[in-house]
Design a protein around this nucleic acid. Sequence first.
DNA 1: TTGAAAGCGCTAACAG
DNA 2: CTGTTAGCGCTTTCAA
Lengths: 334, 334
Amino acid sequence: MSRNHSPVQSAARVTMDDLAREVGVSKITVSRALADHPGVREATRERVRAVAEARGFRLNVAARNLRQQRTRTIAVVIEMTPSHDRSMSEPYPLSLLGGILQELSGAAYNMVLTTMAVFERAPPAVDGVILLGQGLYEDAVDKVQKSGLPYVIWGSVDGNEDHITVGSNNVHGGRLAADHLLFLGRRAMVFLGETRHLEIADRLAGFKTRLAENGARLMATLHCPFTEDGGHGAMKALLETAPRNFDGVFAASDAIAIGAIRALQEAQVAVPDEVAIVGFDDAPSAVHCQPALTSVRQNWDEGGMLLARKILDLTHGRAVKSQAMPVLFKARET
Amino acid sequence: MSRNHSPVQSAARVTMDDLAREVGVSKITVSRALADHPGVREATRERVRAVAEARGFRLNVAARNLRQQRTRTIAVVIEMTPSHDRSMSEPYPLSLLGGILQELSGAAYNMVLTTMAVFERAPPAVDGVILLGQGLYEDAVDKVQKSGLPYVIWGSVDGNEDHITVGSNNVHGGRLAADHLLFLGRRAMVFLGETRHLEIADRLAGFKTRLAENGARLMATLHCPFTEDGGHGAMKALLETAPRNFDGVFAASDAIAIGAIRALQEAQVAVPDEVAIVGFDDAPSAVHCQPALTSVRQNWDEGGMLLARKILDLTHGRAVKSQAMPVLFKARET
DNA sequence: TTGAAAGCGCTAACAG
DNA sequence: CTGTTAGCGCTTTCAA
């Protein structure tokens, strides 16, 4: 029946004062009754509850937030490109958010999902910040730091003890990728990915280390975006400029790897017989693509939960440490 | 007097009063200067700005929210199962959130991502609600309605004018799926999906209509979860209990379809030669799976933007209507 | 162009 | 078990 036409709230909203007057107690008693504080007579609590229900009382959360100087809300700042091509899910899939949300939910905390731009332009009322996004790094960290709020970062665990970081052990992931390709007898490798991102740089570092230890060579490092098209373009360009001089590829994401495989197949290069390839993330499409993609899985869920737990600890003044999480190698057909 | 133990911010935070004292103006002038109100002398504004910067002033958003009686924040309530199997991205992928976020960002609004449970237990300070999630439906709508906030729903556009709904034209999607299978000469169909969800029920309804119009038959409707395992299990059970009496399948999601294909292949049933199949959503894996899955694409991005625009309109007291969005048929190998 | 007063709705602290 | 007082930090209103 045409409710909803109310702009924000229907009429003047019912306050605790209104309830207090009606029940015949003071508003602090109303507050205590509704908040389940001990030391309110059960009968009183019941009456307050009943009237609150009857009058459609809703707590003014903004008022409470101001009074208590805390919002029980954590901001999650993501990198978002509006482009269709690069879906938000590429570098940081929903399961990372899922892990965060699950943990925050458990603590009865809310989560504000926002971008750096909005975070600056219209700062939300929050108690802490989780920063996702490699591109953002240096810049974004500064901005968040300026906000004065406690924060944790998803990314590469560098030596900087100034900020708390949670992330996969990317160096080790790179080593595992190298080991696989070496095991397949490959000696001449190519790396695909944007190494300006610390996480990616770490993957390459681990990869290189193992190659060096085993006398294999890195023929090229191609900087390409995280997408399938990025991988396809980079590999296509590589194949067109010179005769193929490599037999192993390590891609910084599964999307890149899948694009690269497509380019290889278009150029009549057999995968994995002529060129073996390892991706990263173990995305769903890694299982379904042809041939099935060997990849390095990150534990997004757990990562999200860790991020949430750490930011909650920080907001409660507890000590917190950075943490690198193990990755899992998934050998498939490539 | 131990102000609040301030777990959140380090020292006592700088307030507008502090700035006012230091600059030698009243706090309201500080407020106006920082908010770029006209009618503040430029010199004054500059001084205020400088001191604010120097002192590391940060606006107390909670206080502003209380005073202004609005938060510039919209809650997005999602259905979240903690289970690994059913990823959050299944029914409502990140791109829907992306669309919402993009539109809210543009209006300098923040977005609280939350679940129904948290929304009830720890209501966030918001001006409106976007409700995602078919499972939630009746129940969740009631709960949100009780909150007294304006809201819009992603889902099926039913006749109910009480609430504003945005969603794909699921009925038409069902018709398109039927047309494809009929075009391939199929006459005996199976539907896979949980029809208690209104959206799914709509897909089935459109599907049935077309079958009836063309004298084809619906042999079975199997209720299964949205996952690959759900589709696999349902199809496997169907194949085991009786001789195969169908040659076309319409699945309520791509994940279900991919699971069903696997079950068919395991039972030595050729896809699409013996059984053709159509999915829904046009997920990335639809392109990569073997054989490539025919599907019905939903315009998530646009849907998210519409949801956001409508809830903003509602919170500003503007009239708003429900809207069904066109879907796009993607014929592939199945 | 600036300021004084008031108060948004709630809850912590202390008294009774 | 309940109440009084005070005030969180900001912005609206009205006055100068």
